[in-house]
Structure formats: structure tokens, C-alpha cells
């Protein structure tokens, strides 16, 4: 079976709240697939389910035809499901190189005794490990600052480091949870180029992002979630022209006018946030 990540009738309830109901999506390799939707649509929940952060209430997730539902996070990562976090989760006191190195532990676990007891082997292993880590960092132009601690990095580099770490586990599926959040225009552009460069025939890239410019520019396929359900699916152009999506994001034309009317009655001028500050062209 060709590489594919499938959500089959996936649902997740938090108490009475159905965060995701009966979701069926396929993520394919070689392209960038985006998942968008207004706040609370269930995007992050979908990542967290695929990453094993919490159990599904129903349905199943398959990678390559293999049922990976309910595996613990480290096993999921080992079977190729890798992710970044919406709120950065770095090892603050460790260097960039070390961030990448620790991802190797599972693969090289048996060598730990040798590394502890036999200094010459340890030296050789350390050199090789650092070289491999540098190669990963180099893809993100971070190799030059490989010995800097994460806490001393500027925000843009911290974001990149998280993606580099997610790549270091040699993923088959890469979930990016709002990689552009907090980045400025230039940084977002640069990040977009990097993500395009990451595309490869054996890697599924799933992007969750609020920056619609970026989503439309990078994505080959888009899934739109709304209130935990799949609202639309298609290419960027199809999604742009979809009236359901516009309604979900912006409200119906009537809602919009009602809001504006409400705002006019206020003393101060209130800028109405429509959806996530999205402008539709």
C-alpha cells in the first residue's frame, strides 16, 4: 500500500464537547496538505490525536495501512509520526546540536554502555553524532550556531529548531502546528521556502496555520474543519471559491452587517475582527 496517513471516522469528545466528530481525511506524501479552520475547529486536536497526546473517542488512524491508533507518543514518533508544537517546546538549557542528538537515542540505545565504558569509542561516536546533527541543522541554516543554547536563540530560530528536531527523527509524517505564528513577514516567507524544499516523495507534510497567504501559497491540498467536522476539501483555488468556507470564517453577509452596525453605535471605533483576521481576495 502506498504511503498514506488516514483518519477513519475519528472522533474526540472532551466531556460533552465534541472537538472532532466523524472525521475522514487522507494525507498524501510528496505534497503539503494544510488543515485550516476557525479557532476551535479541531485542528490542533487532530494533531494531538495523531501524535498520541490523548486517546481517540472513536475511529482509527492508519499509517501505510497499519493501525497506529492508541500507540504511545514515542512509538508513534518511532513509526514515523513527528510533530512540532503550537507553543514551542524546546530543551532550553541544551544546545542546538544536543536537540538533534537526543532524537538518535532510541536508534543507538545499545551503544550507550560502550560510550560510557570505552572512551576512544565514545570520542568517535560523539564526533560522528555531531556531524550527523550538523547535517540536519544545516538544512535550516542553523549549523553555524550549533553550540548555542536554545534559551539564547531569537524567536525565529527557535521555531526553525523545533522543525529541525522534528525532522531529526526521520519522519514519514510531519505535522507542523502553526509554524509561522509570531514570525514577521520576511521570516514567514523564508519559512515557506524551507517547507517547500522539505517536500519529498516519501514524506507527508501536514501544515496547520492561520496565515492564509502562506496556506494558499504552499498547499497542494487543503482540508477545512469547522466545529470538529470536515467542511471542505480541495485545492487552494477550490477552497477560496467555496461559499461554505467563507461563511464559516466570516459569517454570512447579514451577520457581518449586523456586527458593523453594532460597532458603529460604540463611542470608540472598534475594528471588527473577522474570523482570524483573514482577508479573502
Amino acid at each position: 500500500m502506498a504511503l498514506v496517513l488516514q483518519f477513519r471516522n475519528v472522533s474526540k469528545k472532551f466531556g460533552a464537547l465534541a472537538a472532532i466528530s466523524d472525521l475522514n481525511v487522507d494525507f498524501k506524501p510528496g505534497i503539503i496538505t494544510s488543515v485550516i479552520g476557525p479557532n476551535g475547529a479541531g485542528k490542533s486536536t487532530a494533531i494531538n490525536l495523531a501524535g498520541g497526546a490523548y486517546p481517540l473517542s472513536g475511529g482509527a488512524i492508519f499509517l501505510d495501512g497499519r493501525d497506529i491508533t492508541g500507540l504511545p507518543p514515542y512509538k508513534l514518533a518511532q513509526s514515523g509520526v513527528s510533530r512540532t508544537f503550537q507553543n514551542l517546546r524546546l530543551f532550553e538549557d541544551m544546545t542546538l546540536i544536543e536537540h538533534i542528538e537526543v532524537c538518535e537515542l532510541t536508534r543507538t540505545f545499545r551503544q550507550v554502555p560502550l560510550e560510557v565504558f570505552w572512551p576512544p569509542a565514545a570520542r568517535r561516536m560523539a564526533v560522528e553524532r555531531e556531524k550527523r546533527a550538523m547535517a540536519v541543522l544545516d538544512k535550516f541554516d542553523l549549523a553555524g550556531i550549533g553550540h548555542v543554547r536554545a534559551r539564547d536563540l531569537p524567536y525565529g530560530h527557535r521555531k526553525l529548531l523545533e522543525i529541525a528536531r522534528a525532522i531529526a527523527v526521520r519522519p514519514r509524517v510531519l505535522f507542523l502546528d502553526e509554524p509561522a505564528a509570531g514570525l514577521n513577514f520576511k521570516e514567514t516567507r523564508a519559512l515557506g521556502e524551507r517547507l517547500l524544499a522539505l517536500r519529498s516523495p516519501d514524506l507527508i507534510i501536514v501544515l496547520i496555520e492561520h496565515d492564509m497567504d502562506m496556506v494558499m501559497r504552499l498547499s497542494d491540498e487543503i482540508y477545512v474543519l469547522h466545529q470538529g467536522r470536515l467542511l471542505a476539501h480541495g485545492t487552494p483555488d477550490q477552497i477560496k471559491g467555496n461559499t461554505d468556507v467563507q461563511t464559516a470564517y466570516l459569517g454570512s453577509p447579514n451577520d457581518h452587517q449586523a456586527l458593523q452596525a453594532a460597532a458603529r453605535t460604540r463611542e470608540s471605533r472598534v475594528r471588527i475582527r473577522t474570523g482570524e483576521g483573514v482577508t479573502w481576495h
Binding site: A53, A77, F91, M94, E98, E101, E104, T108, V116
Partner: peptide, 22 residues
């Protein structure tokens, strides 16, 4: 050793380390 580094990472953020396959 790498194990020592992984312990440090675990001290910093268990969730992130698990997501890295450890």
C-alpha cells in the same frame, strides 16, 4: 553520554522528548 543528554532533555520537557521518539 547520549543517555545523559536525554536525561537532561527529559528534565526540560518530557512531552517534547517523547514526541522525538524517546
Amino acid at each position: 553520554s547520549l543517555l545523559g543528554k536525554a536525561w537532561r532533555a527529559m528534565r526540560e520537557d518530557q512531552v517534547a522528548l517523547r514526541a522525538s521518539g524517546v
